[in-house]
Design a protein around this nucleic acid. Sequence first.
DNA 1: ACGGATTTTTAGACTAGCTTAAAAATTAAT
DNA 2: ATTAATTTTTAAGCTAGTCTAAAAATCCGT
Lengths: 220, 220
Amino acid sequence: MATQTEEDYIKAIFKITERNQGAANTNAIAKYLNTSAASVTDMLKRLSDKDYFHYEKYKGVYLTSKGIQMATQLVRKHRLWEVFLAKKLDFSWEEVHDIAEQLEHIKSDTLIEKLDAFLGHPKYDPHGDPIPNAEGKFTLRNQFGLSTLSKGEKGIVVGVKEHDKDFLQYLNQLEIGLGTEVEVIDVVDFDHSIKLKINNQEATSLSYKVTKNIYIKKQA
Amino acid sequence: MATQTEEDYIKAIFKITERNQGAANTNAIAKYLNTSAASVTDMLKRLSDKDYFHYEKYKGVYLTSKGIQMATQLVRKHRLWEVFLAKKLDFSWEEVHDIAEQLEHIKSDTLIEKLDAFLGHPKYDPHGDPIPNAEGKFTLRNQFGLSTLSKGEKGIVVGVKEHDKDFLQYLNQLEIGLGTEVEVIDVVDFDHSIKLKINNQEATSLSYKVTKNIYIKKQA
DNA sequence: ACGGATTTTTAGACTAGCTTAAAAATTAAT
DNA sequence: ATTAATTTTTAAGCTAGTCTAAAAATCCGT
């Protein structure tokens, strides 16, 4: 059975290749895992006969289907635990990640299937990210960046791109969360900032950096 | 922060000293943790400056108050997770231990307090063992071995001494669980076996080895 | 209180995972 | 196309935790 560290490496490679399209390079993995490039090379060499990924010296690394399956199951576990923490234990969306990072390593298939059922087979986690089902399939959604809306358009917040704690807490303060109704009152061409009605309250101004990181579903 | 292995050692020492009264010896710890006596000695030496226990060569080991506190918190976490698994996820009492053994190592004080509240501050785990509160206090109970009952006496099952899977599954088969009502119909002096009515069904015969391991609360 | 059995410790060695420093390979710029 | 910058790998060594085999200490029966 894979160790916690092995799981961390596989998940890191998965996240990096998913984001960058193409092989994950040593430095990126080191940065993601807060370790040194030398450690990564070392680990890749030691793990490369376990069939989780293809590794070629100086060429980076990409997952095999076995590796992808393992990473997907980790993501599934992580996100289901996040739902549990948020929905059942009342944690806020910026608090769930760190604890789920630990919980995702608990070994028991039965546990995760029972947890899934207990939570009512949720399709999305507290940040709006899709939860793969037991077969590894993600349920995709027709979503847009809030920054792409034009003056007068309405939407419902369905997710966030950035998961940084400060960002999420800022959204809390603005009373923006999943399900929040927003309406674009004005768009400032100069800096792409937006004047926004949040749940029909008086309008607030949001920077481009913020609106780019909020996903919405368009509303008639 | 203590590693998982450190936590395992502390808990082992706690369990052994609790059971045996007096210092825990090397062999007992080795057996409990499925490792070698040499590894235990080694670990005790390496951990002995962390103030969790007193260790004297050839004399065994006993916990300091710091060590006891840590062990108690581990027991609290373990048993709360067991309640979660049994009550919320519908695991049977013989299945919860192994998973809780992993879950007890998750690091987050908030998590455990929220879990406790979510479960309604339970006082006992699925085997009837008391759950220490946040301050480490156990709620004791006036209980007796089923083997101590005389002919005609009634009781309610409140716990088990033995946690072995086969034993617990045998009890499942007999339809004996926490809360089950039992009535002693007859006691056989020769082998101390007992004829028992379970939830007022027709009587079954239970060996001394079994009745010794069932705790009951006496019933008028 | 002696000898044998048992328990515990020491010694030496192994693996997983990590580190820093230096060497080698690749990439990018003129 | 050569040099310079960057990235990656190698080398050597560290810690936590494990093991086996052998030595030392303790315990126990007579």
